[in-house]
Amino acid sequence: MKLHEIAHSRTGDKGNISNISVIAYRQEDYPLLEKEVTAERVKDHFREVVRGKVIRYELPQLGALNFVLHDALAGGVTRSLSLDIHGKTLSSIMLEMEV
């Protein structure tokens, strides 16, 4: 199934770094997220966009993961040539991941 069925997500930006949360709707689905949605998989999932490293932080009591994607915004909001300069739409593509 797609991550979209069991989790929700929001993207934030700071400079050229994007952060994307992945939050389980139900606490019982969190272990699956922790097991399957690894930093490596996220890096591969966004291979066309992210040039730098991907770091994952875990917040089990919230059923949430936070991914920090370095060099992911084509230079950042102020310089980017992209349509979505903030990378705000990246959360939706995160939820396309198969788990």
């Binding site: 929001r10 770094i17 949360s21 917040l59 919230l62 936070n66 920090v68």
Partner: peptide, 16 residues
């Protein structure tokens, strides 16, 4: 809880 969790992690890197 869901709206608060999304906003808690918005533009956050290391939550600690």
């Amino acid at each position: 809880a869901a709206t608060c969790k999304e906003q808690l992690l918005y533009e956050i890197h290391d939550p600690a």
